[in-house]
Nucleic acid binder design. Structure first.
Length: 774
DNA sequence: CGTACTAGTCTTTTT
DNA sequence: GACTAGTACG
C-alpha cells in the first residue's frame, strides 16, 4: 500500500501528471494541499527529480509552513532542500543576492504601508501636491495598482498626457521611486516588480534560477496578479513544468491586483496544459455545500464546477435575525458557550467570520462577558504599533544607515532634545550634498547653522550611539543588540516614566518583540543558518496576520472572511449578513458588477469554511463608524434556498418593527451615495465622545484587536495595596535597589515614587513596576 | 522645544 | 467610535 492509494482518481491524475503545464481546478475542500504535497513526494521518489529543483509558492507563511511540514512527513530524505516559500520571501531571497544589478544595496529595507505613506508625504511636499484634493493614499494605491500591472513610472506617464490628475500621480510615482531608491528601500509591490525587472535585464540570473527551479508549483493561483504571473512565467519558461492550483470561485483579492484572468486564461497561455478538476469535497455536509453552490451560481463567467460530497445532508443551515448587532454578538457567544457545555464542540472548533475588522469589537465584548477564550486574527498589526516601529527603526538604522525614514523616526525618540529646527538643518545639508540624513549627522561640524551649538553635541551623541550598536552587532547576538538598544536608549524606562495609560501594554509588546528575536535566532541555529539583522527585519516585514495563528490554543477564532480562506472549522458563524455590510455598501452602489461578484465569492469562501455546522446571523441595526445604520438582510442569504435554512429571513427590504421616523430616515441616509450629505443630527458630538472616554476605567475597556497571546494576559491593573510602604527599601528588575519616597492612590493603580540608588527618582505604577520589598 | 487640544478622516478586504 | 495629523500655546 502506497501513500497514493488514498487519493481519488482526479487527485491521482494531479499527482502523477508531472511534466508540462498543469492546471488543477480545486474546489473548496477538495484536498488541493494533499495533491500538492503528494505531487512533490511523487516527483522526488518516483520521477527522479532532485528536491533541490522543486519550487512551491504560496501566499502566506502559514500556508508555506503547513506545506513544508506535510511534505516533511511524506518525503523521507532531502525535503529540506525543496524551496517552499511565499511570493514575497522568494523574491526577497533572490534580490538579497542580485539586487545590486539594479543599483540597490543588497541590505535594502522593506517598507510597510505606513512607511510608504511617510515617503509619499515627502513627495507631496516636494511636488507641492495639495493633499486635500489628492490624498497620499489615493496616489499610493494608484501606484500600487500600476506596479501590480508592471507599469513603470515612465509608462505611467505617457498615457497620462492630458489628464491632470494622472499627470500629478505620474510625477509622484517617479519621485516616490527616486526616494525609495535613495533610502535603499523597497515597498511590498517592489519586491515582486524588482525581481521581474532583474530577470528581464539579466538573462544570466534568470537562467540560473530556471535551471534551479525545474518544477514549479503555485498555490492559490487565482489570487496572483500580473506581476506575479510574469514572475512565474519567466521562471517556468525554460522547462515549462508549471503546476498551478486554484479555484476561480475563491478569487477574493481583486482589490490587491489579483487578476482572475490568470486562471481563466491559463489554457490560452499554455495550450498544451493538462486540466484537472477536483470536485469531490471532503470537508462539508451536503446542506452546507448546497448553500454554497446556490450562492455562487449567481456569478457569471466562472469555470463550470459541481462540488459534491459523500457526507450526508447534515444539519440545516442556521439563520438568526436580530434587532441589534449587540444581540447578535451575545447570541453567538452564548451559542458557543452552550455548545461547549453540551460537549457539542470545543472552543477551538468554532470560528466567527465577518466582513470588516471593526465588527470584531462587539463580539469581543460579548466573549469577554461570558468568559469565553478567543483570538482575534488581524486588526492592528503587531508590527504597526508605535513602540514596535520605534525599536525596529533603531534596528533598521543600525542595519541600513541609508534608510532616512528610520533615522528620522528615532532621532528624537525617546526625547533627547533634538527638535524640528535641527532636523531641518541636517536635512537641508543632506539634500544639498546629495548624502543620506544619517551621513549628514556625522558631519555636523560642516553645517554652519549647527556647528558648535548645543544641538550639534546631541546629534553627535546619537551617531556615536548608533556606531556602538553596530560594533555590538558585529560581536554579539541579535538578542544582545536589541536589549542593548532598549537599555541604552532608556526606551522602556521612558515608557514607564511617561505614566501613560497603555504603557503596560506597550512594554509587553516590546517584551514580545525580544521574544521574537530570540526565537528567530534559535530557529536559525537549528537550521544552521546565520541569524542576520537584515534577515530578522525581513521576516518581520513579511509576516501576515494569519501567520501567527495555530490551532493549538483552545480558543474561538474571530477573523475577517479574507483571513479565513484556506482554513476550516467544524462550527462557523457568518455574522453581519446585511446588504450594506456584506455585500459592502461600496459594491452595492457601484456601476461595476464585478465588485459584487467578488463579494459573492467571499460569501462562498465563508460558507465553505464550515465542516458540519453553519450559522448565519443578521442584525437590523448596527453602528458603523459612529453612525447607526439600518440594513436589510443580505442578498446572499436570500440566494440560499429556504428549505436549507432553519429560519426564514425577514422578507426582503421591509422595515417591519422599526416604526419610527428617525430610524427610517437614517435607513435612507445609509443608502445615499454622498456620505457628506448625511444628517448631522444623529452623529455623536465630539465633546461627548471625549468625556465618555475619560469616564471609562481602563480596566473595563475591552481588549481590542491586540496581538494574539497578549489577549489573555492580565488586563485590569491590580488594585491591591502594595506590600511595601513609604521609606521601605525595594528592588526593581531594571533599576535595582531604591527607597520608596511616596505612594499615591490613583484612579486605577498605586503610583509609587522611588529614589533608586543608581538611577535616581522614578515614578511608576505598582501593577507593572513589580517592586519587591528587600 | 514640548504639550494639549482640536478637527478631520476613516476601512472593505492585505502580502 | 477611534485614530491621526495639525496647530496653538506654554
Amino acid at each position: 500500500m502506497s501513500i497514493y492509494d488514498t487519493l481519488n482518481e482526479q487527485q491521482k491524475k494531479g499527482v502523477f501528471t508531472t511534466n508540462g503545464p498543469v492546471l488543477i481546478l480545486a474546489g473548496a475542500g477538495s484536498g488541493k494541499t494533499r495533491v500538492l504535497t503528494h505531487r512533490i513526494a511523487y516527483l522526488i521518489e518516483h520521477a527522479g527529480v532532485s528536491p533541490w529543483n522543486i519550487l512551491a509558492i504560496t501566499f502566506t507563511n502559514k500556508a508555506a509552513g503547513e506545506m513544508r511540514s506535510r511534505v516533511d512527513n511524506l518525503v523521507g530524505f532531502g525535503s529540506e532542500s525543496i524551496w517552499v516559500a511565499t511570493f514575497h520571501s522568494t523574491c526577497v531571497r533572490i534580490l538579497r543576492r542580485y539586487i545590486d544589478r539594479l543599483g540597490y544595496d543588497t541590505n535594502f529595507t522593506i517598507y510597510d504601508t505606513d512607511d510608504s505613506k511617510n515617503v509619499m508625504k515627502e513627495v507631496c511636499k516636494k511636488l507641492e501636491i495639495d493633499t486635500k484634493s489628492l490624498k497620499e493614499r489615493t496616489i499610493l494605491s494608484a501606484i500600487s495598482s500600476a506596479k501590480d500591472e508592471l507599469i513603470s513610472p515612465a509608462e505611467y506617464e505617457r498615457p497620462a498626457y492630458g489628464d491632470y490628475m494622472k499627470q500629478r500621480i505620474a510625477k509622484a510615482y517617479v519621485e516616490y521611486q527616486t526616494l525609495l531608491k535613495k533610502n535603499n528601500a523597497l515597498d511590498f509591490d517592489d519586491i515582486i516588480v524588482k525581481t521581474v525587472e532583474l530577470f528581464k535585464n539579466n538573462p544570466d540570473v534568470l537562467e540560473s534560477y530556471q535551471d534551479r527551479f525545474k518544477y514549479i508549483m503555485v498555490d492559490e493561483y487565482q489570487d496572483t496578479n500580473t506581476a506575479q504571473f510574469e514572475l512565474i512565467r519567466l521562471l517556468a519558461a525554460k522547462n515549462r513544468n508549471l503546476c498551478v492550483v486554484g479555484d476561480d470561485d475563491q478569487s477574493i483579492y481583486k482589490f490587491r491586483g489579483a487578476n482572475i484572468r490568470n486562471i481563466l486564461d491559463f489554457e490560452t497561455v499554455y495550450p498544451e496544459a493538462s486540466v484537472i478538476k477536483l470536485e469531490q469535497n471532503y470537508r462539508s455536509t451536503q446542506n452546507i455545500l448546497d448553500a454554497a453552490n446556490a450562492v455562487i451560481k449567481n456569478n457569471k463567467g466562472r469555470k463550470d464546477k459541481a462540488l459534491w460530497t459523500d457526507a450526508g445532508a447534515g444539519n440545516m443551515v442556521h439563520f438568526r435575525n436580530f434587532e441589534h448587532a449587540r444581540e447578535e454578538a451575545d447570541y453567538i457567544a452564548g451559542d458557543i458557550r452552550k455548545k461547549k457545555r453540551e460537549l457539542i464542540s470545543d472552543y477551538k472548533d468554532c470560528a466567527v467570520l465577518y466582513r470588516t475588522n471593526a465588527q470584531s469589537r462587539l463580539l469581543e465584548e460579548s466573549f469577554i462577558g461570558l468568559n469565553i477564550p478567543y483570538n482575534v486574527v488581524g486588526g492592528v498589526n503587531f508590527y504597526a504599533r508605535r513602540e514596535i516601529k520605534d525599536i525596529l527603526a533603531y534596528l533598521k538604522t543600525i542595519d541600513n544607515g541609508r534608510d532616512d525614514l528610520a533615522v528620522r523616526r528615532i532621532i528624537n525618540v525617546p526625547k533627547r532634545g533634538i527638535g524640528a529646527a535641527s532636523i531641518n538643518r541636517v536635512q537641508e545639508y543632506a539634500d544639498r550634498n546629495g548624502i543620506s540624513f544619517y551621513e549628514a549627522l556625522g558631519q555636523t561640524d560642516s553645517i554652519p547653522s549647527l556647528a558648535g551649538g548645543k544641538a550639534a553635541k546631541k546629534l553627535k551623541d546619537f551617531v556615536l550611539m548608533i556606531r556602538s550598536f553596530r560594533t555590538k552587532l558585529e560581536f554579539g547576538t541579535l538578542e544582545e543588540l536589541i536589549t542593548d538598544v532598549i537599555e541604552t536608549t532608556s526606551y522602556v524606562k521612558e515608557l514607564e516614566a511617561a505614566d501613560e495609560e497603555d504603557a503596560n501594554d506597550r512594554i509587553e509588546n516590546i517584551d514580545e518583540l525580544i521574544t521574537k528575536v530570540v526565537s528567530f535566532e534559535q530557529e536559525k541555529e537549528e537550521t544552521g543558518e546565520k541569524a542576520t539583522l537584515s534577515g530578522f527585519l525581513e521576516e518581520v516585514a513579511l509576516v501576515a496576520d494569519i501567520d501567527g495563528v495555530s490551532g493549538d490554543d483552545n480558543k474561538v477564532l474571530l477573523m475577517t472572511l479574507h483571513s479565513a480562506k484556506g482554513l476550516e472549522f467544524s462550527h462557523v458563524y457568518l455574522s453581519g449578513l446585511e446588504d450594506g455590510v456584506f455585500p459592502s455598501y461600496m459594491t452595492i452602489n457601484s456601476d461595476d458588477p464585478s465588485g459584487l461578484e467578488e463579494e459573492r465569492r467571499l460569501a462562498y469562501v465563508g460558507i465553505t469554511r464550515a465542516k458540519e455546522d453553519l450559522t448565519i446571523t443578521y442584525a437590523k441595526q448596527r453602528m458603523i463608524r459612529g453612525e447607526t445604520q439600518y440594513n436589510p438582510v443580505s442578498r446572499f442569504v436570500r440566494e440560499i434556498p429556504e428549505e436549507l435554512l432553519d429560519n426564514k429571513p425577514t422578507s426582503g427590504y421591509s422595515m417591519s418593527g422599526a416604526g419610527n421616523w428617525g430610524a427610517a430616515a437614517e435607513y435612507l441616509d445609509s443608502y445615499k451615495l454622498n456620505k457628506n450629505e448625511k444628517s448631522s443630527g444623529m452623529t455623536a458630538s465630539k465633546p461627548k465622545a471625549v468625556a465618555r472616554k475619560k469616564e471609562t476605567p481602563s480596566g473595563n475597556k475591552p481588549y481590542i484587536s491586540r496581538s494574539l497571546d497578549s489577549l489573555t494576559k492580565g488586563m485590569p491593573a491590580s488594585l491591591e495595596a502594595p506590600e511595601y510602604g513609604k521609606g521601605d527599601r525595594v528592588r526593581h528588575i531594571k533599576f535595582g535597589i531604591g527607597t520608596v519616597l511616596n505612594i499615591e492612590k490613583d484612579t486605577r493603580d498605586y503610583k509609587i515614587t522611588v529614589d533608586f540608588d543608581e538611577y535616581g527618582n522614578k515614578i511608576m505604577y505598582a501593577a507593572f513596576a513589580k517592586l519587591k520589598k528587600v
